[in-house]
Design a protein around this nucleic acid. Sequence first.
DNA 1: CACCGATGCGACAAGTTCTGTCGCACGGCG
DNA 2: CGCCGTGCGACAGAACTTGTCGCATCGGTG
Lengths: 336, 336
Amino acid sequence: MKEAKETILRQWSMLRKIPRHPGSVGTRELRDKLQDEGFLIDVRTIQRDLEKLSSLFPLSCETRGKANRWFWMEEATVMDLPGMEPATAVAFRLAEEYLAPLLPNATIRHLEPHFRRAREILKPERGTRLAVWPDKVQVIAGGPALTPPSVKPEVQEAVYRALLEDRQLVCTYRSKDAVQPKSYPINPLGLVFRDGVVYLVGTAKDYAEVRHFALHRMEAAMMLETPCRRPPGFNFQTYVKAEQLFAYPLSRGPIALELAFDKGAAVHLTERLLSKDQRVTQNHDGRVMVRATVKNTLELRWWLLGFCDKVEVLAPQALRDEFSAIAKRMAHRYGS
Amino acid sequence: MKEAKETILRQWSMLRKIPRHPGSVGTRELRDKLQDEGFLIDVRTIQRDLEKLSSLFPLSCETRGKANRWFWMEEATVMDLPGMEPATAVAFRLAEEYLAPLLPNATIRHLEPHFRRAREILKPERGTRLAVWPDKVQVIAGGPALTPPSVKPEVQEAVYRALLEDRQLVCTYRSKDAVQPKSYPINPLGLVFRDGVVYLVGTAKDYAEVRHFALHRMEAAMMLETPCRRPPGFNFQTYVKAEQLFAYPLSRGPIALELAFDKGAAVHLTERLLSKDQRVTQNHDGRVMVRATVKNTLELRWWLLGFCDKVEVLAPQALRDEFSAIAKRMAHRYGS
DNA sequence: CACCGATGCGACAAGTTCTGTCGCACGGCG
DNA sequence: CGCCGTGCGACAGAACTTGTCGCATCGGTG
């Protein structure tokens, strides 16, 4: 026997090395992994440990041929240490509500065990007289109520793996115009998340051209053994920054914004700052003047447009001209 | 000895009962808690367990007078079971990036240990040749780049606790107009999260009037022993739905939306559906017609306004009139 | 079809660990 | 000062752990 109290630590390590259901692990495999961590232990002991632990934890095994393969049951909630505190559980519930429209289902699915745990904690039956969550907390999400397109879990899994392990990927892709989906190998270079949509950035077959593949348009995907080939000199970060499609920022430097809000419309700004140097003053005509230095982005325009006629852009002149033009075109469109 | 293999389970339970640093727990306390779960165990054993476990886990104790008080070190990362898989770690990283502008710092703080764990998993040094996260994945958040106002962690903590335990709260509040903050008791009735701002809904002192207190305007907050008194017949859920300030939905039923997008502007819609029954057709004038049944919300208006002159609302007539009026007013504002 | 290697598992015995119990040492409090 | 609550060292018997064997199965291979 090497050391005292090895046991618990080893069992702990073992538990962490067992994957959740779709995956699984064999006993020898486990022994090797444990050996890497310095636990010199007999296979027999591992068998015994597994058997014992499976009566305490939601572990299960499946006999493939002769060998036993162990895994966590798929629906096992996360067991975390230190135990989740109510405040953390509340944070998780909030995260769940906020993220639902922002992340694809297949990604959310991975967080699900944590969300489940949070819900358990917030259940009122749990001794502590914690109130029922929805009776006390409400989320009013700001984003539009669009639902993100659904991505097949297997597809996302394959894409993630290929990307992280730097391998090629065979993919059945239904492109926007084509009715019939086509299969071909892709060299995955990076992932872009925008709103609820996920794009795989990569090159198809042997082409040098970098393309975007929306994950929800992939009917199937499978990682290959062949390593990913990347165009010489390609850098994902600079690519994303440079690429038109994803580039929202419109000019490099910040702009000195000057706005006049109708009374009442500017309440938001006293809650959420537009920038750190934001200054708010009352105008003589009753309107609220706001000055702030902000980034010149498309998002800024969307945000301003959301106030429609309740805000007037005073400066910079270029932005004012933009809005003036927009207003003219809109009026023309609906006019007479 | 009651049963075999009790030990690990008991130690596991014990670990979960120990709070993270600001909190702490004593040995007798632990014994009582464990007794509630059916572990009839001597205090001495608990002392021994703690000592042993503290050499394996980031546990620590602090001697207050004579008694030892145990806790998890504040910076301890979450240890979860089953161990976090790379795909889950990616999901957490995404969650982190998306939530930063949506949740107040004090709430995010509670998720931090999980985020930290995810970052650890995605570090490249971990044997597996997982690529460095930022080299492979980019998030382009859709929301505006406003930063949520910062909330003091102690304040949020106190508010959460008071709310969940149904107690009163003493609060030093700096109201919008007043320069000097004032202290008074509040009966907490519920929390509302909207964009990055958190509001406590409640009544002040003995008043019956229900008010909203923004958490970032609270300089201090402390839970009281006195139970929360709620206005007779008050129901948080119906209150939030009814209340003007928070009520975004504008009419009960859904509306049959009909839009004409300029060519190119409707690309989004082929990615993200507006509704399940959405139908997209090509018009003879080159524009893209979209028909969908959607909820009649303010958000819908914001979203449509974001397209400014690139979309025309055709139906329902009421909405078209709204937009027509908005366009006219905007043009007038910037006109001449 | 037989043989080989890999795997699982029951049994065993020696060695470790666990646990209730005592007794002693402190520190605070009345 | 004495009492109480707490921590902790020591002890012994019971319970548990673990390496080792040996046997039974299963799959694949020649």
